[in-house]
Design a protein around this nucleic acid. Structure first.
Lengths: 280, 280
DNA sequence: ATGTCTTATGAAATAAAATTACAAAAAATT
DNA sequence: AATTTTTTGTAATTTTATTTCATAAGACAT
């Protein structure tokens, strides 16, 4: 669902000259139009009020008022997202804002880019799995451990392997009833890719969580789950990317949990009670 | 920075009776007002057009048009965020959306609630620290490990302890030049609280990352960093809360990294090169 | 109670803005 | 070059918002 400004951009070349001038003005100065009357806008575009109204109707709005409200709303939503790169001399507040918005954006983009059918397949596979292996090293190792922690709580037989030898050892012994999840943002991490390949060869269903696009890991994964992210400061910061990956884990976990809700509530209560004595 | 609807809510009781009726109508049906003319709104509120204009001015808007635009924009921003609880019979798309939005909300709320001064103090302490200990168990243990992984990359002497005995052992040996970071969403996790207390007694600077409000962990922390979150499905899911905590780690990491940017770039390159041979 | 003052309110007048109708201009087609 | 079609702006009209002002309601003092 593209925003209002994108719709204007898309239709730009099918517009009559005078309407095109209006469209371009709005695209260039979208923040202005909330205070512009139809007459002022017409003047600034070097055209007439009637053309502005026609332009609004062409775009499917009820009239100028309607366009004004819709564009302003679209702009408000967009401005919430702009986050810009962190620069070295940013103050504390700027860094808090930029890093946070960047992480939010990573989650949002992932939400948009995730293939619903692939997610459904992955959830189905995880639910049926006799046991689950999670493979990941470095930053993705953390994600793997998080996944294990979650699925453990709902009584799924699963293990996160962050040690290369252990990954390979476990993968070699998987059966067709098992599922292996390889986590690597670059999609090029040898250890994880090799382990996933071995798992596939052993007959297990393989799932990867990686960045959008083709990479070695996508070749050895039966089910491909993609995340997108751009880092706020350092390319290799691995901040937003792991948030996006964790979001995928949350989604898978929630899907599996919803399938057998009654059982799972019980498991969650059990595990919650188990650690309760360790709380003040 | 509260939204427009919150502003109306806040001022509600200082309004004259007729204006109050308008305020209540808008709060109850905010999505309507974008298509209502001033006359229609007045009628629905059982009041006059003049009162609507007065109401707009009282709130600091230029007039009814202005209010209309601002409220619509505010609503658009808010509707992007509403995520509702996951229900058991949601389909894949609904769950992807709800879980993602919930995670985004956790980051956003944390961004709003984080005390800038405390964050600055924390970053300062981490930068000066001779060594850093991260304590956390369970889901928060993952966050602790993530923190260690990040700070390690910029050549900070730090360790994440997720084992109770090791936490206590390390804490007992800290010095005033060291920093200990205790991570516990509930703020009541004995292991983490005890370790942080021991660290404080040993003279180290203590930082906690926990949920907003008072809890055992805030009593033993010199610097308090708060996150907020509400879980999408299960109260004990620990999904959004750990995303919020990781966001805080990212912020601290970025702040420290920005302070000595030139050195840090070098460290990041070194560490990136170090793992490069393990990539396809 | 009664009168005076203050505040709140809506009807009506006014002003402003948006929309429509229509004719002129420009472009396309014959 | 003439005719038709499309595009455009002016001006009239309608709709909508704003202001003015008289009145009503309430508060307060006597």
């Amino acid at each position: 669902m593209p925003g209002d400004l994108e719709k204007i951009q898309a239709i730009l070349n099918n517009l009559k000259p005078s309407e095109k001038k209006i469209a371009q003005y709005i695209l260039k100065n979208p923040e202005e139009i909330s205070d512009l009357t139809i007459a002022e806008l017409a003047k600034r575009c070097g055209t007439s009020e009637a053309s502005v109204v026609r332009f609004c109707k062409t775009l499917g709005y009820k009239g100028y008022q309607d366009l004004k409200i819709k564009v302003s709303a679209d702009l408000a939503v967009k401005s919430k997202k702009v986050q810009g790169l962190v620069s070295v001399d940013d103050d504390v507040d700027a860094i808090i804002t930029k890093v946070s918005k960047n992480n939010m954006l990573a989650v949002e983009n992932t939400m948009d880019v995730l293939d619903r059918a692939e997610v459904a397949k992955a959830a189905q596979a995880l639910m049926k799995a006799k046991k689950i292996d999670f493979y990941g090293v470095g930053a993705s190792g953390i994600v793997a451990q998080d996944a294990m922690h979650k699925f453990m709580r709902i009584n799924k037989a699963c293990t996160a392997y962050t040690d290369t030898h252990m990954q390979l050892t476990s993968a070699a012994n998987l059966s067709p009833e098992d599922v292996a999840v390889g986590i690597s943002y670059s999609g090029q991490t040898m250890d994880t890719v090799d382990a996933l390949r071995l798992a596939k060869n052993a007959g297990a269903t393989t799932i990867c969580i990686t960045k959008f696009g083709h990479s070695p890991i996508t070749e050895v994964a039966d089910i491909k789950l993609f995340v997108t992210s751009s880092e706020a400061l350092f390319r290799s910061g691995a901040m937003a990317s792991r948030i996006a990956q964790l979001n995928v884990i949350d989604i898978l976990f929630t899907l599996v949990a919803c399938q057998k809700y009654d059982d799972i509530i019980k498991y969650l209560e059990n595990t919650s009670e188990a650690v309760a004595p360790r709380k003040y």
